[in-house]
Design a protein around this nucleic acid. Sequence first.
DNA 1: GCCGTTTTCGGCCCGACTGTTTTCAGTCG
Length: 571
Amino acid sequence: MKNQELARIFRHIALYLEMDNEIIFKIRAYENAANSLESLPEDIENIYKKGGVKALEDVQGVGRGIAEKIEEYLKTGKIKHYEEMKKRVPVDIDSLSAVEGLGPKKILILYKKLKIKNLKDLENSAQAGKIRKLAGFGAKTEENILKGIGFAKTSNERFPIGVVLPVAVEIEKRLQSLPYVKRAIVAGSIRRRKETIGDADFLVVSEQPKKVMDYFVSMPDIARVYGRGETKSMIKLKNGLDADLRVVPERSLGAALNYFTGSKEHNVALRTIAIKKGMKLNEYGLFRGPRFTAGKDEEELYKALGLHYIEPEIRENTGEIEASRKNTLPNLISCDDLKGDLQVQTAWTDGANSIEEMAVAAKQHGLSYIVITDHTKSLAVAGGLDEKRLAQQSKEIDRLNGRLDGITVLKGAEVNIMKDGSLDIDNPALRELDVVGFAVHSLFKMPKKEMTERIIRAMNNEHADILFHPTGREIGKRPPFDIGIEKIIDAAKETGTVLEIDAYPSRLDLKDEHIRLAIKNGVKLSIDSDAHNKNHFRFLEFGIAQARRGWAEKKDIINAWPLGKMKKMLK
DNA sequence: GCCGTTTTCGGCCCGACTGTTTTCAGTCG
């Protein structure tokens, strides 16, 4: 899929245009196209193959000019215009612009005056004291560049939501406990529950902003202070996470929360609506001329714009605003809607706790049923179960259900999909299970066509109920398998197979846009913790967030249904 | 360069902080 490559090129073109002092709107057009391509669930090459340049122009942010550049890239692997730009200013634009405080204008001057092309050149010139002598630069800038180089390696890093959320909530609590703080809220991509987080945004209501700033920039776990102003400060924590804090007056809380929650694209769209209505929207409120119209809370703000309230998880400007205007927003699944968990590992294989311990923990978590899905025999590293051991486990589950109260334990397995698409447990044994989960755990690098066919063949097994972690990715560690997700979704619909949203923080698989695509095609989903110990049921929260980002409703998620109805959905 | 429930031409989101400046450009989100 070339979507990301093209997005990166258009981002570079935008930077080069900025060096040339091109008008801001042309630059934004390239950035918009890059954003749009990055979040496009369909393969741009497919779109082009099906409908040519005309179809490309239907993509948001892509017009005649950029469509032709996409075509050129798909046909020749290059974009002439871009190649010329690179030739004229041959610098490593990604790594240089990753240095905090270094943008296209400064990069151009550094190249022209000092022939700086990459981080190494930059470091040498800075250390030699050459940068401070350039017009528009100074000793402070040089110092910041040197600091920035040290941080550049980590500054682009994104952290899984599962790692960041507890840290952010902790800081939120600390801020909230200060006597001069009225409200403290985590906003930004954390509030939108994006799967990975670039930085943490905190919003505070206080009448003593200076005191808040003092506290924030001197917290014990800070590695660096980027900036500190009257109402805004930026820091880096020792764990590598960047954090921003803004203080606003109370009447602006809703507008500020909306602004700092984003996404940027969503905000821009809202502001455009405000302008069309003869108003102005910023983080302090919605204004008609000098008159404050709305902004104390978000509901009032959306209403004043002629919209229904939009949940943070879907504020990505991917159709939510239109749906809000027409009052066709989804009724998103919520945190307490889940009744069961359909993927749970135990000490029978690579889990840490017994079946009973997992069942008790699940009940405490508010669930009324779980499925035990230990690995199967071909996954030797996990001590996978064979048909005989599965039968033994089944007897233990029967005994346990006789004893347990308020929670039902179902029999299942996480069966391996073999190279040829067959399953590693025979059909008579599968028939005995309540829920057959199945997944790829080997030969991750198969070519796209073979991998897709392999999985689809497994989906056609008469007992195969739920495809676990369908794309196999591990965030920050392993890319997804090369598969045709559209074909998998079609096959799920045809075979009545459920697709999983694996809530394990490093997986979050399926991802949001695939969830939305699956739902659009009438495919049912499950949200499972993939728990490997009794504390892992809390991961369900992240799966629900992921499902909400994919516009999922209760009716789409089979383990939000009562046990009887859920079982009827299975093969 | 994109886009259209004002428009196929004339618009295009808004503000904070820093550093190097004597009033602002560059960068960031």
